[in-house]
Nucleic acid binder design. Structure first.
Length: 115
DNA sequence: TTGTTGACCCGTC
DNA sequence: CGACGGGCCAACA
């Protein structure tokens, strides 16, 4: 009964989850969905971002679960995302963010990254 | 109504 | 690393 949530509410929670990502950190689409109370709805997050128009939304902190930038390499959005991430002190190499890994699983959020 | 298409994810091999 | 299959789901043709 948690899952089939009203689209508006879902969108609201997803945007809130994205806004909650601290500056200089990143999160995966699936992770954002989980934090929004919508496990398994990564694609919904992606779709909302593609439609997003809010300039205050830190959309650039949202990456794929493997730490890569989701946008097609070379696209305008791709370049802007790289730029914004670097502006926050992150290292981006080959379309991938180095040094900060997006917690892909709940385990890694609880137990921390494997040493 | 069925078929495709995405800024996706994950387990398995 | 990569490929494959399955899940997820709103929008559109």
């Amino acid at each position: 009964m948690l899952n089939p949530m009203d689209p508006d509410v879902a969108a609201k929670r997803i945007f809130a989850a994205i806004r909650a990502i601290p500056k200089g950190e990143v999160a995966g689409y699936g992770e954002v969905a989980r934090r929004a109370g919508l496990p398994g709805r990564a694609r919904l997050v992606a779709r909302l971002l593609s439609q997003n128009d809010d300039p205050k939304l830190p959309w650039h902190r949202v990456l794929r679960s493997d730490g890569r930038i989701a946008l097609p390499e070379g696209s305008k959005g791709y370049r802007e995302q790289c730029q914004r991430l670097r502006a926050e002190g992150l290292r981006v190499e080959g379309g991938r963010v180095i040094g900060v890994r997006a917690a892909a699983t709940l385990d890694s959020q609880i137990w921390g990254p494997p040493d």
